[in-house]
């Protein structure tokens, strides 16, 4: 079960895996995610469903290698199996009934932004995509985005590709130049989403963000994924992951995500060393 049937290194630190999971493929919708465990001692980590194929019975994920678990995941090859894969989790993104939207993606968050942008497009909306990366060698999915966007802005922090600067600057320009969006959808690092919300707030533009707190079960059982939205506590795994970005307590969300940082850094190092020894 959960056999890897395709593996592509999109970038040195960004990998795509297509995995057999017919039950999940049957039900998946844009904006939903899975939780996986690589092996018996593995942590449960959430990843967005980038693509699903109901006929083939597969789901595709794209992930950035940031720690121990994503490192292990990156060592899987075609034919290998994941210990566990559960989903589709969370609520699907509402993509119907919109005339014109802006989708803002940051880094590997673009893997999440793409299916949402495509769903908006398929539902007949005019879609403006603004995707940002640190530098040229991290740019992913450009052609995919182009196929579903009426306007596409690719930004890099260091100006090595596309326009130089942050996604918030490009977004602001599009808004200022008279584009009337029914909704802005942002997904990426918390800090980026926070600033997208800051940018849209003065214009009163409804802004939805896809939150990525630390999760365990993904079924509403632990409360580890809780965030504060408009003063209310919400569980991102069942109430979200999409929320009204203008209501989120961002500072708290950012801090809560660093809860296990020391352990994570240590585990990552340990895992890397393990793989290095195997290579020898």
């Amino acid at each position: 079960m959960f056999r890897v049937i395709r593996r592509e290194e999109l970038r040195p630190t960004v990998t795509l895996l297509e995995v057999e999971a017919p039950m999940i493929a049957r039900k998946a919708k844009p904006g939903q995610f899975i939780i996986l465990r690589v092996d018996e001692n593995g942590e449960r980590i959430p990843l967005t469903i980038y693509h699903y194929d109901r006929e083939k019975g597969t789901v595709t994920i794209i992930f950035q290698i940031v720690g121990a678990t994503t490192e292990k995941l990156n060592h899987l090859r075609v034919g290998d199996c994941l210990a566990d894969l559960v989903g589709p989790l969370g609520k699907a993104t509402v993509t119907e009934g919109k005339k014109k939207v802006a989708v803002v993606g940051g880094g590997v968050g673009c893997a999440i932004a793409y299916p949402v942008a495509k769903a908006f497009h398929d539902n007949g909306a005019e879609v403006h995509c603004i995707v940002g990366f640190r530098s040229q060698d991290l740019v992913i999915l450009e052609d995919d985005f182009r196929a579903v966007s009426d306007v596409l802005e690719v930004c890099t922090d260091d100006g090595t590709y596309g326009r130089k600067g942050l996604v918030t600057e490009a977004l602001k320009e599009l808004i200022e130049s008279g584009n009337q969006y029914d909704e802005v959808f942002a997904i990426g690092p918390m800090i980026m989403m926070k600033f997208v919300c800051r940018t849209t707030e003065p214009y009163g533009l409804p802004t939805t963000v896809s939150m990525s707190p630390i999760m365990i079960d993904g079924t509403g059982m632990c409360g580890g994924c809780r965030i504060s939205v408009g003063g209310e506590t919400k569980f991102a795994c069942v109430d979200g992951p999409d929320f009204d970005g203008h209501k989120i307590d961002w500072d708290l969300a950012v801090k809560r995500n660093q809860m296990y940082r020391d352990f994570e850094m240590h585990k990552h190092e340990e895992t890397c060393n393990l793989f290095r020894q195997e290579v020898k």
Partner: peptide
């Protein structure tokens, strides 16, 4: 209630027992 280091018993026990 949401600050870092406040967790439900379910989360704490799940990390320890299940994981």
């Amino acid at each position: 209630i949401n600050c870092k280091g406040v967790l439900s018993a379910n989360e704490f026990l799940t990390r320890i027992n299940l994981m």
